[in-house]
C-alpha cells in the first residue's frame, strides 16, 4: 500500500505517494533530492540525519515520512536565508568545526535547535560549554574531538545575540 503525502521542505511543498515504511530521511534524500541530510547509524544515535520538523530538531531516520505528512521540515540546505549563511554555519567554518563534513549538517541543525531553545540562549546569554556539549549529545563526530564544534556554537550564539540586540536597538 502507498499513501499520498505532502511535506513542505525548506518552504517548498513536495507531494509523493509513498510506502508507509518510508523513512523521512529517505523522503528527503530520494524524493526531494536533498542529500545534505546524511545517514550515519541505524539506531537513532549519531544524529547525522537531524532536521527541523515543525521547528524542532528530530532524527529523520526515526520518523516515518507519513508521520510528517502536512508538516514543514527544514534541512541544512534550507538554513541559509536570503543568500547569507546561518550564524551556526559561519561558526562551524570560522572555528574549524568540521573535518570530513559528514556529521556536519546534522550537527549544525542540532546546534541551531540548541541556540533557538536553550534557556541561556532564550535569555540572550551564551550557553556555557557544558550546556553546549550536553545539547549536542545526540550527535556524534569522529573527526574534531568536539572542541572546535563547541567553539563554533559559542561563536554563533554570540553572533546571534549581537544581531538580536542590534535589531532591538
Amino acid at each position: 500500500m502507498t499513501k499520498d503525502i505532502k511535506i513542505k521542505i525548506n518552504g517548498v511543498e513536495h507531494r509523493a505517494s509513498v510506502e508507509p515504511r518510508l523513512l523521512l530521511v529517505h523522503f528527503l534524500r530520494e524524493v526531494a533530492g536533498l542529500t545534505g541530510t546524511h545517514i550515519g547509524c541505524e539506531t537513532s544515535l549519531c544524529g547525522a540525519c537531524t532536521v527541523m520538523l515543525e521547528g524542532r530538531a528530530v532524527k529523520s531516520c526515526t520518523v516515518l515520512a507519513v508521520q510528517a505528512d502536512g508538516a514543514s521540515v527544514t534541512t541544512v540546505e534550507g538554513l541559509a536565508q536570503s543568500g547569507a549563511l546561518h550564524p551556526v554555519q559561519e561558526g562551524f567554518w570560522e572555528e574549524h568545526g568540521l573535518q570530513c563534513g559528514y556529521c556536519t549538517p546534522g550537527m549544525i541543525m542540532a546546534a541551531a535547535d540548541l541556540l533557538e531553545h536553550s534557556p541561556a540562549a532564550a535569555a540572550g546569554a551564551t550557553p556555557g560549554d557544558l550546556e553546549i556539549r550536553e545539547g549536542l549529545g545526540g550527535n556524534i563526530c569522529r573527526c574534531t574531538g568536539y572542541q572546535n564544534i563547541v567553539a563554533a556554537v559559542r561563536s554563533a550564539a554570540r553572533k546571534m545575540n549581537r544581531r538580536k540586540k542590534a535589531v532591538a536597538a
Binding site: N10, G11, A16, S17, E19, L22, V31, L34, E77
Partner: peptide, 19 residues
Amino acid sequence: MAIRSRKTGKPAPRQMAPQ
C-alpha cells in the same frame, strides 16, 4: 520503495537558494 514525484515521476530537483 515507491517514491516518485507525483507530478513528473522523477526525483524532484534540489530545493535551495539560488547558487
